[in-house]
């Protein structure tokens, strides 16, 4: 054998490229399949590895935009009160007669929408319909945020909740970039998470300290109209199972293959 520098570099580069491309090729048919079927079917039993299989239902057709959920979340989880930092928030969707869609979330909805300033973007346009959409971490079955963490500080529990090990989070924000739903934020220096850290990443835990004690997440408890429901999908009598029994749910951005476990009722495809 006769090694040359050029030969070696070629070999290594080729090998590395090959290794990098191979999985993509293997996955490709799946990608195309997913695109072909416009609405991927949602398998509720998916991910039922653990004893429980938590699920969250948001019925947007019921939401009255009172914002008490946002407030309760912040109080329960010691989230900074400023509107830029949220584990959950409420968006307002406005559809005009011309088919345009406007989305806003004044103050993230903490104060509700009753006194929210008018959005000038659609002032004067004919409004066709409008509704509220509560948002939170989707606790994906395939969480992209977990895959990108360079120090392994974020992970999925057996019962399907994505948590952050804030002792080891280095605050690099890769996971914030990776999350397609904008569900993560970096705790500012003034704030402190329930774990006692600042300048680390924080996110919705479905109130892990509550659900493991048999209580509902704080946002679910204070919702006056049942727009937020929580429970064990394995239990046919749980509020989530009952709500999903007769209504096919939607999930946000299904084409990404993240398999969210927050199921939406009463939304159309403009909501993402």
């Amino acid at each position: 054998m006769d090694f040359t520098r050029r030969g070696f570099i070629k070999g290594v580069l080729g090998g590395v490229l090959g290794l990098a491309v191979l999985p993509a090729l293997l996955k490709a048919p799946g990608l195309y399949l997913r695109r072909a079927s416009a609405a991927p079917t949602i398998d509720l039993a998916d991910g039922g590895g653990g004893e429980r299989h938590w699920g969250f239902v948001v019925d947007a057709s019921r939401c009255i935009g009172c914002g008490l959920c946002v407030q309760a979340c912040k109080r329960e989880n010691n989230v900074v009160m400023e509107p830029e930092y949220n584990r959950t928030w409420v968006e307002r969707y406005v559809y005009t007669e011309e088919g345009e869609v406007f989305v806003d979330s004044p103050e993230a909805g903490i104060e509700g929408f009753a006194n929210a300033p008018a959005n000038l973007k659609y002032a004067g346009l004919d409004i066709d319909k409008s509704h509220f959409v509560p948002k939170l971490c989707n606790q994906c079955e395939n969480p992209p945020c977990v895959q990108v963490c360079p120090v392994g500080a974020t992970y999925k529990t057996e019962d399907g909740v994505v948590l952050v090990d804030q002792e080891h989070c280095i605050g690099c924000r890769y996971c914030i970039q990776a999350c397609p739903y904008g569900a993560r934020y970096l705790v500012p220096s003034g704030g402190v998470t329930p774990m006692g850290y600042s300048k680390v990443v924080d996110k919705c835990t479905w109130c892990y300290h509550r659900i493991t004690k048999g209580l509902r997440p704080a946002c679910v408890e204070v919702c006056p109209v049942g727009a937020r429901l929580f429970g064990d999908l394995h239990d046919p009598e749980s509020p989530v199972a009952v709500a999903l029994r007769d209504h096919p749910p939607a999930v946000l951005k299904p084409a990404l293959g993240t398999k969210p476990r927050v199921y939406y009722l009463g939304i159309d495809t403009e909501v993402r």
Binding site: A72, R75, E76, Y155, T157, L163, D165, E167, P194, M195, T205, Y208, H209, R210, T212, K213, L215, A218, E221, V222
Partner: peptide, 12 residues
């Protein structure tokens, strides 16, 4: 770490 999250105190 899971235990730690589960042990946090309640407000509501």
């Amino acid at each position: 770490n899971v235990e730690l999250w589960a042990s946090k105190p309640l407000q509501y």
